[in-house]
Computed example of a mutant assay.
Amino acid sequence: MDKKIDYLGNLSGKILLFGGVYSNLQALEAMKQLAEKENIAPENCICTGDIVGYCAQPEQTVQLFKIWNPKSIAGNVEIQLREGAEDCGCDFRKGSRCDGFSQQWYPYAQSQLSKDSIDFIKTLPDHVTFNYAEKKVLVVHGSYFNTSEFIFKSTPWDIKAPNFEVNNYDVIIGGHCGLPFYDSKSDKLWLNPGVIGMPANDGTPLVWYAILNDKKGLLEYKHHTLNYNYKLTNNLMQNGLLPEEYARTILTGIWDNTEILPAIESGLQGFGIQL
């Protein structure tokens, strides 16, 4: 199947990057408010996918996303939803805790979404690309080659490198893994802004995003934390239909398990994000 890639042209001004909204309406509201406070136009706000996910308000989240109208690519969750699939497509190990949890939250999300929301999800491209600060930028969810591939800071560069070589990209904006990081080599940059729907396993309920700035042709990037009404998010998730463990993570900032993480990232659980 051919990939759908949207070219956004030459962008200027600040660019807001975020991902993994995960049906967390309160986090998306806070992200939208921050963009407006920073005077970042919706066309300069870019989501790395997984608008829908673990939290309690998938329909309301998609509808607010439509109203705000930032750019987004399709995450693995959107791909599965638009195809009417029976699972989230996260490539969790069969029988793992994450696999078990997905059998709760994914059918819940699927049952809550209207036809209008599914139709919107079907419009999302696989990737977006643009020029910024004299760099060619590509936005992926997992990787260019596999939407569900987990790419972390500790992932070897020889695994990251082919993504740049697809069309001589200078910058890859990635998502999916749930952790903010940057990794650079030979003037190439892999930047994951983090996700706003769940904490980053760092022991705080705050979530992560990033802002790009063009400083006279030099690319500046910086990660930031976002505070939002996580107590309300936690309360709404305790509806008897979603994993209680994920609701607890919203408050504690600690993941229930680290089975998807490489050893380095797993060992940093609860120690904060090192950027």
Rank of each mutant, 00 (worst) to 15 (best):
Q63C: 08
D170P: 02
I250D: 07
Y106V: 04
M237D: 02
D183N: 12
I40F: 01
A109G: 00
T204C: 10
D170K: 01
F120E: 01
I15D: 00
Y108S: 01
Y7A: 05
C45D: 05
K3A: 12
Q33F: 12
A200M: 09
L179M: 12
Y230T: 05
I211W: 01
G178H: 14
W157V: 05
G178W: 06
C45Q: 07
K3Q: 15
A161Q: 15
K160T: 11
S143A: 07
H224Y: 15
K32Q: 11
L219T: 05
Y228C: 04
H176Y: 13
G100S: 09
S12N: 13
E244I: 13
A74K: 09
G13V: 04
D126V: 00
K32S: 10
G174V: 09
I51T: 11
L17K: 04
D183H: 14
D119C: 08
K3G: 06
E244G: 10
L124V: 06
L218G: 01
C88T: 11
Q104A: 07
Q57I: 03
T123A: 00
G272C: 03
A30Y: 08
P193G: 07
K37A: 14
P199E: 13
T129S: 09
C90T: 15
A85M: 14
T258N: 14
T48K: 01
Q112P: 10
Y106Q: 04
C45E: 04
G175C: 01
K66Q: 14
G142E: 12
G194I: 01
F65W: 07
E245Y: 07
W208A: 07
N24V: 11
Q103W: 12
L138E: 02
Q103I: 06
I273N: 05
H176W: 07
I79T: 10
F152N: 06
E220M: 07
Y246Q: 10
D256W: 15
N192R: 09
D116C: 10
T129E: 10
E134C: 05
N192S: 07
N201M: 07
I121A: 00
S143E: 03
F120Y: 15
